[in-house]
Design a binder for these strands. Structure first.
Length: 193
DNA sequence: CATGGGATTGACT
DNA sequence: GTCAATCCCATGC
């Protein structure tokens, strides 16, 4: 059963934590969420920080929809819109553990190892075939489905990755026991620079 | 209309 | 660890 809108109409941080362990399905492909980050309009790393623009229209829209945007000219990144309409907040899906359609994922990604299929926000959209066409689509009855978790994961919390502003906020959530995260955990705390 | 930066990835030193 | 690819979009003239 797909989640109800009430699940998304809450604090974006609570949703980010509760999405760990849930399953994302798109067509033949599906994976278990093992890594998320939360973003909110009140902090500068969030796209909604600049206010309502054509790009951020989806972020300010009703909860329970997909916000997909194009980054670095190459990658589509998948977010889940949260909180009330008029509030710009979303959860970035950063990594999945592949479950269904793994051969199709391999064909789309051009790699074989399961750990390399969905271990990054740009990788998982490629593996699942999600693109800009899915922006603003409903997660309740649209092409992308979110299914409840089947067991309680052990969750680790840390600082977000790959941003230059508000880097100190502990808004990254991971399945602490999964080998499918986008970067080593918790060794990620060590500065890469 | 021109410009600059970015919630990344993968190839290379 | 360093760096380029590549394009959407926000901003400024």
């Amino acid at each position: 059963m797909t989640k109800a809108v009430d699940f998304y109409a809450r604090s974006v941080h609570d949703v980010a934590r509760d999405l760990i362990g849930c399953v994302i399905r798109h067509g033949e492909t599906a994976g278990r969420i093992v890594e998320t980050e939360s973003y909110h309009m009140e902090e500068p790393a969030c796209h909604a920080y600049v206010g309502l623009t054509p790009r951020t229209r989806t972020l300010f829209g009703p909860p329970g929809r997909a916000y997909v945007y194009f980054s670095y000219g190459i990658h589509s990144l998948l977010n889940v819109v949260c909180e009330d309409e008029g509030v710009g907040a979303a959860v970035l899906i950063r990594a999945l553990e592949p479950m269904d359609g793994i051969d199709l994922m391999r064909a789309r990604r051009g790699v074989e190892r399961p750990q390399e299929l969905c271990s990054g926000p740009g990788k998982l959209t490629q593996a699942l075939g999600i693109g800009l066409a899915d922006n603003d689509s409903s997660l309740l009855d649209g092409p992308i489905e979110v299914l409840p978790r089947t067991r309680e994961p052990r969750i680790a919390v840390g600082e977000r990755v790959g941003i230059s502003k508000a880097v100190e906020l502990p808004w990254r959530f991971c399945d602490a026991s999964s080998p499918h995260v986008s970067r080593p955990w918790p060794a990620q705390m060590r500065a890469a620079a």
